[in-house]
Simulated scan of single mutants.
Amino acid sequence: MIHAAGARISLLGRRMEPLLDVARVTNGQAIQCDVTNLDSIHKAFDEARAKNGLIDLLIVNAGIAESAPFHKMTRESWDRIISVNLTGAFDTVQAGLPDLLKSEDARVVFIASVASLRGVPYAAHYAASKHGLLGLMRSMAAEYAKSKMTVNAVCPGYVDTPMTDQSVARVSQITGRGEGDARSAITNMNASGRLVDPQAIANLVLTLCLPLSRDINGAAITIDGGTSA
């Protein structure tokens, strides 16, 4: 949606094939990047600048999820989740910050989660990383409130994406439920009883990036069918 509004898009991620699929639709630039590797981030941002100019809008949406009872959670799993979901976000924003502070109307939008707002059984590391992401967002919003940059977060419930498919598989494996029952259990964690449409998230991100949204700053906006009401 942002590309349809006139933005030039740089698409960063580890796997080039899905990036190229989106690039063909958006006329964007697909750039390989691993947010757990600082050199990879800086190289990707340099490439993005070379292709599309200085960065005005930064959507931080790299994330992974895993599940385990807390007493069985490993330090390796904890480190992996925090590295991508929180440290990766920190490094990504720092890499783009010099450009953003030069912009006349800059935006940072973190894709967080309703797990940023409550505890999540069997996903303490994921919830901790997403709580940390809101702390990062709110601190930046307060620190740069007098600048021309806003910093906000979108907090979705369960979304109709492959990541939710992976969650279904994990719940099925951990609980012994059939895949259909596991999917129903996850879907019903959204008060609406349905998964969130990814396009609804894209629409909200676009709204936050519009010039008229310059006074929305430090907001954590839920999009979960009413679960957080």
Rank of each mutant, 00 (worst) to 15 (best):
L101I: 12
L19H: 08
L54G: 03
V84Y: 08
V196F: 06
D91W: 12
A141H: 04
V168L: 12
I81G: 09
F45A: 10
A112G: 09
H42T: 12
Q166N: 13
F45T: 05
Q173E: 15
P121K: 08
R14W: 07
H71S: 13
I2Q: 11
E17H: 07
I201D: 01
E143S: 14
Y122M: 14
S103H: 01
L204D: 03
F90Q: 11
L97T: 11
A30W: 02
V151N: 05
E104C: 08
D181N: 14
D215C: 11
R75P: 00
R14H: 10
P121L: 10
I31N: 04
K51S: 12
I174S: 01
G157P: 02
I9G: 08
A68G: 10
S83R: 12
L101S: 08
I201Y: 01
V168I: 15
F110C: 08
T175Q: 11
A123E: 14
G218K: 04
A145E: 13
I201W: 08
I82V: 14
I31Y: 02
M140T: 08
P156W: 08
I186K: 04
P121H: 02
L136I: 07
S10F: 03
T74N: 10
P18E: 10
R75M: 13
G157A: 04
G176T: 01
I31H: 05
A185H: 10
I174M: 12
D224H: 11
